[in-house]
Design a protein around this nucleic acid. Sequence first.
DNA 1: AATGGTCAGCTG
DNA 2: AGCTGACCATTC
Length: 798
Amino acid sequence: MNIASVVVDVAVRQTDRPFDYEIPSRWEDMIQPGMRVIVPFGPRHVQGFVLETREEAESRKLKPIVEPMDIAPVLNKELLSLADWLTAESLCFKISALQAMLPAAMKAKYSKHIRITGDHTLSQEAQALFGSREEITWEEAAETGALAEVRREVKKGSLDVVYSVKSKGQKKTIRMVQCPLSEEELAQTIHSMPKNAVKQKEALQFFQGIAGNWVPLKETGISSAVAKALIEKSLLLEKQEETYRDPLAGRTFELDQPLELTQTQKAVIEPILAKIKEDQSETFLLHGVTGSGKTEIYLQSISEVIKKGQEAIVLVPEISLTPQMTDRFKQRFGDDVAVLHSGLSTGEKYDEWRKISRKEVKVVVGARSAVFAPFENIGLIIIDEEHETSYKQEENPRYHARDVAIWRSSYYQCPVILGSATPSLESFARAKKGVYKLLTLSERVNDRPLPSVDIVDMREELREGNRSMFSRNLFEKIKDRLQKGEQTVLFLNKRGYSSFIMCRDCGFVPECPNCDVSMTYHRHRHQLKCHYCGHEELSPNVCPECGSEHIRHFGTGTQKVEEELLKLLPEVRIIRMDVDTTGTKGAHERLLKRFADKEADILLGTQMIAKGLDFPDITLVGVLSADTMLHLPDFRAAEKTFQLLTQVSGRAGRHTLPGEVVIQTYTPEHYSIQLAADQHYEAFYEQEMQVRKAGGYPPFYFLALITVSHEEAITASGEANKIVANIKPELSPAAVMLGPVASPISRINNRYRWQCLIKYKREPKLGTVLKQVLEHYAKQGKSNGLMVSVDIHPYVLM
DNA sequence: AATGGTCAGCTG
DNA sequence: AGCTGACCATTC
């Protein structure tokens, strides 16, 4: 008999293994590994992925596959084995790995219906529920409280519960029509139409001269009622044709030409092209200061790959995946480019995925998950801004796009380019060790000078009586730009209005009732919001503790900066960009366009403006508070601060006008701020490496984070202790186990959280040991409510 | 995850 | 006896 082993869509430890199903003979030639199928699982139907098919001589009792969901595999051999690797590497469930590689539209949608079987007579109560219908939804029955009655009837056999599985996303189709008559017949028919059939006559006239051609109904101008009448008379034929939703509808791109490379660019691209030509895998770390022309290197390398008949993947952090960025690829490669970003609807993403899968494009530009693009002849993978932490996925499967890229490059024997002006310490250290090949672009194209940077000590400002959030230095410079008609970018890494509120009389700070974090104040709805569990409540006007009316809004958000700025300079035109103003689709693009069109003097925003914007008239960049990030409980805080400041400073003076940067800080002496001002990457690298070495952090050690949570703090800490005690003897003496300690956010959603951090260099057994821990708690922990999660190479230590 | 089976405890 | 809710094993 023919057997398929199937991983089912039930993401828990107990079902995290393949189940065997019989392949019914009618699907025998059809069912292949990598296909989605619907299978019976227990009493219901679920989606599953076929891992492999085989023939067994002996027949055994297996349930048959209900039906395939695809006509061709959605995952090829390579992606299936990548899923194996991902599962082992990140300790996730196989189903999570498989699903991570496909667009959300391919996730299953489940529904439950209750149907009358007709075998027995229904009770009156049930009859009332159905009315004249044959079938109702489960939800409907549940709402009316009739489930008990339904259960009885099901037992009796008069009702049936049917489970259905559907793919979430649908292919979009358009209605096509054709006139099947010959031209002569058509002319005759039109002539002999009854006089009152004006519309039908008109419709047929449309087909004169093009009879036999398929035309989209929309383009014919024929109403659907008229079309229906003609189809009934067989004067027209119709069919549904698959089509793509077009996110770029109405936009055309004029192709541009490769730019002439500078000497340094040539020196850098040469080894990349060599590896492409030789079909060899190699990871390049392209370290190029902002404005040094990294993108042109990417574009010309991709050209080479396309020339060879291969494909390329380009990863870009979500926040810099702007039209400005993707247009450069569209302009160079035209229709050969697919773009995957979060702004697309589920359906649009699905369509882009299908274009890739059918090899209708050669290049994919997208955020993290685009690393799974289903190409089968990859010639190059590029990760731009490789230091960005958003390349690490924080849910299962907890993978890092860089690792996936390198895995795929070794499968396809092609190079990887990691590009950044401020490489992650991990990557730079690997480049220094020779694991990656380091390529450096140290000059800006056209030798534009780097902007001059002023560091302003805000403590000093305060001492001299300036209590505003703008230093005198920055304020003067802003006024100067206004006069000259040049543009300013102000950067702040906070969102909302104020980050928290506090009673000035008793010091009370409202905290989330479910989590141990202070709540964030959102002014537009005068609400307090918890960023961890989503809890919302109205912001109090009097202190709930002491009844005082003196409530102060602490921390400075973009809204507040805007207000203060308008107070000081009433006529200034500001565009504010943060999560609040860019929430709607395309808002990001619209705001940037307005700024580019010089409809505003100042662009004020959070993280999202740190990247990629490149306008000629920006001559001033102000960082309002450089150290908000520096004091987070994160060993990467200094690195992130350095990267951000360097990145932001790069926004100024990219064109003919020289740029200036003002960095305001309360810790001007910190090396990450000093060295960012000097744009001195290597010096920062050396210094930070010392710190990491002393602390035993990456890149000197690998990390694994175990988090244990439970409703009772005692249970969480007790079990965390047990876990540590169990793991410790399994590891080599060189491994360090920190904790368990309460997590920095010690409670989320009413669950207390304890964590321990493992620092290690080489622990071949670690994966197995951690998997055992997870399995143990999957069995035992389910009943006592304990949850254990493991993050290998964590980026978020909270 | 979701389901059906088992079983203790309660109602009448 | 009949029903409900808690617990728990099972899912090819």
